[in-house]
């Protein structure tokens, strides 16, 4: 691991995990394991987060929440799938309400196996994510210097349109965005 210049903030979401990996993620924050020594801070605000830790496979209801959280994060962002369920669906793969791993919804950079993933392996995954984050933010800085604006993902036109405009963020609870609600209200 090279020199880390930034301190990445970490967001944790439980997609459909059994809790085992979640409490191990929390245990990583406490003094015994302490990921804060790598400059990683646990935050609950997706807008300020750089690394997204997802535990558990996704189901139809949580898929939308995961997508929403990923959209709300500012670029550059790194996703870590913690536990075998988040990687492939794991023990719950055959359940009727499990669609599979997190990579069926959002792109995943680091896979951490284990059931439940041990704090040591979660720390290993987070350190890898910190490295990837460092590379990406260097590339991002370079892009901004050359083009004068933030890079956008043009492969997904919807995501590119949503980016930077909080009113158009997809709301997983009401299944609409604030922007589209306003438009509907105008029509009436």
């Amino acid at each position: 691991m090279g020199k880390v210049k930034r301190s990445p903030w970490l967001l944790h979401y439980d997609a459909s995990s059994c809790n085992g990996c979640d409490i191990e993620v929390l245990a990583c924050m406490t003094p015994v394991y302490d990921v804060e020594r790598f400059g990683v801070v646990n935050t609950a605000d997706p807008m300020q987060a750089d690394i997204l830790l997802v535990t558990g496979g996704v189901n139809s209801q949580s898929a939308e929440v995961v997508k929403q959280l990923y959209d709300q994060m500012a670029r550059p962002k790194v996703v870590v799938a913690v536990g075998i369920c988040a990687c492939t669906g794991g023990v719950f793969k055959d359940c009727y309400n499990i669609n599979g791993g997190v990579d069926t919804v959002i792109p995943v950079d680091v896979y951490v196996p284990g059931c439940a993933a041990r704090p040591e392996s979660i720390i290993d995954g987070v350190v890898k994510a910190v490295q990837i984050f460092q590379e990406r933010s260097d590339a991002h800085d370079k892009y901004v210097k050359e083009h004068g604006e933030s890079e956008r993902d043009l492969s997904d036109p919807d995501a590119a349109a949503r980016e930077g405009n909080p009113a158009d963020f997809f709301d997983a609870i009401t299944k609409t965005s604030e922007g589209s609600r306003d438009k509907e209200a105008e029509k009436k």
Partner: peptide
């Protein structure tokens, strides 16, 4: 986080299901 664990008894035999039952909650 509904997964449908109760239904999994039809796909795992009763000895194997012990390990699934444990993973209801960590």
């Amino acid at each position: 986080i509904h997964r449908g664990l109760e239904d999994l008894v039809k796909k795992r035999d009763f000895n194997e299901y012990v390990y699934v039952a444990e993973r209801t909650c960590g």
